Simulated assay, not measured.
Amino acid sequence: MFLNRRQALVASAAVMAPMIANAKLPAHAKIHCPFSAGATVDMVCRQLAEQLRGKLAETVIVENRTGAGGLLAIDALVRSPADGLTLMVHGGAIQSVFPHTMPKLPYDPFKDVAPVSMTHQLEYGFAVGPAIPESVRTLNEFLAWVRSNPKGGAFATPGAGTPLHFVPMVVSQSSKVDLVPVHYRGSSAAMPDILGGQVPAISTALSDLVPFLADGKVRMLATSGPTRNSLTRNTPTYAEQGFPEVTAVAYNAVFVQGDTARAKQEEISSMVRAALATEPVRVAFEKAYIKPYGCTPSEALTEGRAGYKRWGKVVKAVGYVPAQ
């Protein structure tokens, strides 16, 4: 079979088109993760990397930059080229809370990093373990019990200077009940002491507590959302129990280097939101008790600035003094 000149050109173009398209796609991109492998945020990073492969770059890898309270991952992002090929998934707290709790913040939260989309939202939960009597089923019952048992007011947190530390402290101030934080390096490190009865209560992400509720060893007393969470419908919110000032919803987001061109930020945001809408991501998130939640760069930035003002007031109100 012989092709005429026109047929040959068409055939050649059909062969060359995907080659040209691939040539335009960068070879490598990376996503920095501030947590170790196996953590929820690590799962989020790996799901996004899989979905962005072949779109953002031919290969997208996850680098776990753990340590220094999440600052190592931020430093790696800030030092990267502003070409949109280095991403980071981190908590919105790097813009809203860290500036108020770290005396020498090594980055500008609104210049050095830029959020392009949220990945998911999460609420906080307050739960008690076997150290607290079975009869205690609500936050107010817990506070009443602590009034009668002052040494029982300790609660675990996954880290000092975090919203999970501050939420019970606001309750403590409002109720005039002495609650004392016990800080751990993550909620997974704290759970053995909760289950063993060494620490009575814990304030952590709701998604971290749900797996422990089924056998009754851990009882959820309050959640931080504006309405009851679908995962714990029988648990009233802080607001329902008389603490409306504790209503709070956290989020994680995809960040790029702050000097990344606005058009590139919008492009990456669209890719991330498309990834979050895929069935594999939905299923993976559901197993981790979280729901995909994407947004535009403008929406993410607006939330970051609002959180900065909100948490600044909270940190001041509870009298938190950062370690020097």
Rank of each mutant, 00 (worst) to 15 (best):
A250C: 10
Y251H: 14
Y251A: 15
Y251S: 15
Y251C: 14
Y251P: 02
N252V: 09
N252C: 11
N252R: 04
V254N: 11
V254F: 07
V256M: 09
Q257D: 03
G258L: 05
D259P: 00
D259H: 10
D259S: 14
T260H: 01
T260W: 06
A261E: 13
R262K: 15
A263L: 12
K264N: 10
Q265E: 12
Q265D: 12
I268R: 04
S269D: 03
S269H: 08
S270T: 14
M271I: 02
M271V: 06
V272R: 09
V272T: 06
V272E: 00
V272L: 09
A274E: 11
A274Q: 10
A275R: 08
A275K: 00
L276P: 02
L276D: 02
A277M: 05
A277D: 15
E279V: 15
P280Y: 15
V281D: 03
V283T: 15
V283D: 13
V283H: 14
A284E: 07
F285M: 09
F285Q: 05
E286L: 03
K287G: 01
K287V: 02
A288G: 03
Y289L: 01
I290D: 00
I290G: 01
I290P: 01
P292R: 03
Y293L: 10
Y293G: 05
Y293D: 10
G294W: 04
C295I: 03
T296I: 05
T296K: 01
T296E: 03
P297C: 02
S298Q: 12
S298M: 08
S298I: 06
E299V: 14
E299S: 14
T302M: 12
T302H: 12
T302L: 13
E303I: 04
R305D: 04
R305W: 11
G307Y: 02
G307I: 04
G307C: 07
Y308D: 13
Y308P: 01
K309G: 04
K309S: 07
K309V: 11
R310P: 00
R310L: 10
W311I: 13
W311C: 08
W311F: 14
G312E: 04
G312W: 12
G312H: 08
G312R: 08
V314I: 15
V315C: 06
V315G: 05
K316G: 04
A317L: 14
A317P: 08
